[in-house]
C-alpha cells in the first residue's frame, strides 16, 4: 500500500511543484531505477542455491504455466477493451 501513497505524493509534486522541463530527467530516473530493480532481482535469483537444478527439472511445466495464463489474459483484456473502452494504439517515440 505504501507504494500507492508514495505515487500519490509524486502526482501532487508533479502537478504542483515539479518544473515541466525536468520531464526528460525524470524519465531517466525511471529507467535507472527499473534496471537496478531487475538487476537486483537477478542477484536474488542467482543467490538461490538450487536455481539451475530447479530450472532443468521443472522448467517446461513452469514455462507452460506462464505462457497459458499470459495468452488467456491478453485475449480477454484485448476483446473486453476493444468492446467496452476506447483504446489507443500508436507507437511512442
Amino acid at each position: 500500500m505504501e507504494i500507492l501513497l508514495i505515487m500519490c505524493v509524486g502526482i501532487a509534486v508533479g502537478a504542483k511543484l515539479f518544473p515541466a522541463k525536468g520531464k526528460a530527467a525524470n524519465e531517466k530516473v525511471q529507467i535507472v531505477c527499473t534496471m537496478l530493480l531487475i538487476f537486483s532481482m537477478g542477484i536474488s535469483l542467482g543467490r538461490r542455491e538450487n536455481l539451475l537444478e530447479q530450472l532443468s527439472q521443472i522448467g517446461l511445466t513452469s514455462f507452460a504455466l506462464a505462457v497459458g495464463p499470459i495468452i488467456g489474459s491478453v485475449i480477454a483484456v484485448y476483446f473486453l477493451t476493444q468492446w467496452l473502452m476506447k483504446p489507443t494504439k500508436r507507437r511512442k517515440r
Partner: peptide, 27 residues
C-alpha cells in the same frame, strides 16, 4: 550487491515517486 538486494524497496519507492511525477505532469 547484497546491500542492493536488501534495500531494493527504496529503489521501488523512488521509481513510484518518479512515476507519480510523470502522471502529475500530464494535466
Amino acid at each position: 550487491l547484497d546491500q542492493l538486494v536488501i534495500h531494493s524497496d527504496w529503489i521501488l519507492y523512488l521509481l513510484m515517486f518518479s512515476v507519480g511525477i510523470s502522471v502529475g505532469l500530464h494535466r
